[in-house]
Each structure stands twice: as C-alpha cells, then as structure tokens.
Design a protein around this nucleic acid. Structure first.
Lengths: 228, 228
DNA sequence: CCTACCGATCGGTAGG
DNA sequence: CCTACCGATCGGTAGG
C-alpha cells in the first residue's frame, strides 16, 4: 500500500472528504444533544461521534453555543411541508371532514414522533439559557403550521363551510383538540414500549376533528354526530 | 459580646433553628433548580443560598438526585385543590356555562403561572435523566385534574346537560381548548414583559369554553352562539 | 504556501 | 458544621 493510498484512506474515513465534515458533525451533535441534552453533551463526545478532532469543531463554530444553534435550526423545517399540505388540501376540499381528518392524522404523528418530541424537550429545557432560540423555533415550526391553518380556515369560512370569528383562535382549537393531550403526555413520558400505536393516534385525531366540526361547522353542513 | 451570644446569632441566622434547615434547603434548591435547571445548579450554590454548609445537604439527602426529587414532588400539590373545586362546582351547577368558565379561568391561570411553567420546563428538560419522576409528576398533577374533570363531565352527561361518549377524551378536549395554545407557547417563551395579562387569559378561556359547549352541549341546552 | 486537522494539554469547576 | 481537598471531566486552545 503506497503512501498515497494510505492518505486517501484517511481523507475518506469515516465520513468522506472535507465537504461532508460539517454534515458529519451536525448529524453527531444532533443525535447527542437530543439524547443527553445541552450540558449533558460534551464537545469531546461530539468530536468522537463525528470522527473528527475537537479542533475541527472550533474551526467551524465559535463555541458550543453556536454549534447548538445550528443543530436546532437545521432540525426544524419539517413544518414547512405540513404547512404547504394544509394550504393545498384545504383550498377547496370535496369532503371537508375527510380532508381535515387526513391533515389531523399527519399533524399528530409528526408532533408525537420521537425526534420532534426530543427536540421540543431540548428546547423547552434550555429555554432559560437560549430564550431567543426557543422563541425563534416556536415562530418557525409550530407558528408556520398554525398560520397556514388559520388562513385555510378563514378561506373555508368565506366559502360557507365553517363559522369562524377568529381564525387564529380556531386554528389553535383545531391543533390542540387533535394533538394537545398526546403531545403534552409525550413530553413527560420518555419513549417506552407503550408508545401510542399509529391506529390509536388516528382515533384520537378523528375524535378531535369531530369535536372541531361540531363546534365550527355551519348548521347542516355536516352530520352533527355519526352513529357509533 | 459573649461567645454564647455569638453562637446564638449563628444558630438563628438566616433561617432559624434546626427544624427549618430542611425547609430552607428545599426553598433555596427549588428557586435555583427552577431558575437554572438541574445541571446548571451546583450543590455549593444551594448550600450558600440556604445558609448551610454543603455537608448539611449530604447529611439530609444521599446526593443531588435525591434532593431534586424532593424539590419536584413538594412543588406539585396545587393540582389537588383544583381537582376538588372541579368536583364541587360541577356537581349540580345552576349555570353550566358560567361554572365551566370559572373553572377554565382558574385552570389557565394556574397552568401559565411562572412557577408552574418553570416546573414543567425543568421536568420536561430532565425527562431523559429522570423518566420515572417526570411520569410520576404527570400522573400526580395534570392527571388528577383530568380525572376529576372526566368524572364531572360524565355526571353532567347523565344529568342530560352534555352529550359525552368518552369522558376522558371530553376532559382532554376541555383542557386543551382552554389552555393548550397558551401553555405550549409559555413553555417556549421565557417570562417577558409581554406575558399575557389576566384579562387576555380570561378571554382565551371563554373562547375555549364556548367551543367546548358547541361541541358537547345537548341540543337546545344552551344558545349555540351569543351575538358578538 | 494553504486549508484542514492532529495529539496533548491548558485553567477552572463539577459532584462528592 | 466548615475548610480543604479528591478524582474526573468540562469548554476551549496551545504548537506543529
């Protein structure tokens, strides 16, 4: 094995060439921060997990806090997609009950996914240390979904399908009827064998949608209550 | 000044004699843990703030984790009182809308109070380190209130005032319609000048109660929507 | 010569 | 109950 070959092996191990160093660090830091929290994760552990030296971390980020901010803001943008889906699917739905149920089921699954619950725990637990970051995330992720839902509900009200005085309040009512209890419980309950299975989440979401429509549907636009 | 006098001054400063040592430590530890989190609070700081030596801490608690558990479990029992009020006031209300609004307003004020929000942040942020403690608190505090509300709603359904298939689900819907959005936002937003004032919380609670009654009241048992 | 990175170790502080 | 101190580990940086 020539020296050149050896050098190549070093360049490509374990995470490929230079361009991917940043990705490798962010991946490792994300995993560790979500697992053990901010003070519970050392820069040494991150460096080890990423397969780089600690000096590399400090060549790319000023300090631990800056790396943490990168991790949080790059872990967010699932929300954008859900917001777009809400806007599209509620534009002019054939069956409002069905459309809302489909959205509700995706919303509760996203909100109670292990990854998102861990990210919320991390941000909530560090809100006193990173108040601006926690607020920024909240406006960015749940805020985007909530704004899309409020706009969609306002449109549906103009179309005559719903009776909505305050679209923002109605969007909050929809979201928390659907996922409030499940999300709150998930924040306090560390992932276990008795995590709610998908079909149970679907039922919870359906119950939330039914309650929402009883509260917000225009009279006669939907059956008040389907027989059990 | 005699040595005895000097000694007495030490005994009674700053938190009185021996019996109150435990209280002084718990008070100091509660303040510091709620302020700076578990790893952000040192046993030295707690000892200093309580006016005792670090050795006293370890004479009363095996280690930092045991002291933390004491702090969390002694900070809880506000919930018991709210649960009792729910049971009493919803037993046979003259005006259901009024009774639910009164309960909702106390519930949202308690849930968004700085102290309770900080306690939630602390437990959620440390749920990975203390999974059993987080679960125990959740069953003890929100769980107690939710159980009382479910029982009360079931009773009201038997009296004919409400239409309730699943009392637990209905209690969740009530709680999260009333306080879900406010609580979720409070967890991410560190106490600031723009905290929601009491009258705004009251409005949010009223909106939640109205939506709940539109969804759960029996037909004709209440006006569907008061004119604005 | 550069960028990217290494092994080794700094001063301070944690829980106990 | 205090001062002094431990083994271990923190975030951040030295020279090469």
């Amino acid at each position: 094995m020539s020296p050149t070959t050896t050098k190549l092996a070093i360049w490509t191990h374990p995470h490929g060439p230079f361009a991917n160093t940043r990705t490798a660090v962010i991946d490792a830091a994300t995993t560790l921060f979500l697992q053990s929290g901010y003070p519970g994760t050392s820069m040494d552990e991150i460096a080890d997990a990423a397969g780089v030296s600690k000096r590399t971390l400090y060549n790319n980020w000023a300090d631990k806090e800056h790396l943490f901010r990168t991790v949080v803001l790059e872990a967010s943008p699932v929300a954008r997609q859900l917001a777009d889906e809400i806007t599209d699917e509620l534009a002019a739905p054939d069956d409002l009950h069905l459309a809302l149920t489909s959205i509700a089921q995706r919303q509760i699954r996203a909100a109670t996914s292990h990854r998102l619950v861990k990210l919320r725990r991390l941000l909530i637990g560090e809100a006193h240390r990173f108040p601006d970051l926690a607020a920024e995330y909240y406006d960015l992720a749940p805020g985007t979904v909530m704004a899309a839902m409020a706009a969609a509900l306002e449109r549906l009200a103009r179309q005559g399908s719903l009776r909505v005085d305050d679209p923002t309040r109605a969007a909050e009512h929809f979201a928390f009827l659907v996922l409030g209890a499940s999300l709150d419980r998930a924040l306090f309950t560390v992932e276990a064998d008795d995590d709610p299975p998908d079909e149970r989440l679907d039922t919870v979401a359906e119950d939330g949608v039914r309650a929402f429509l009883r509260a917000y549907a225009t009279d006669g636009s939907q059956p008040t209550r389907p027989a059990p």
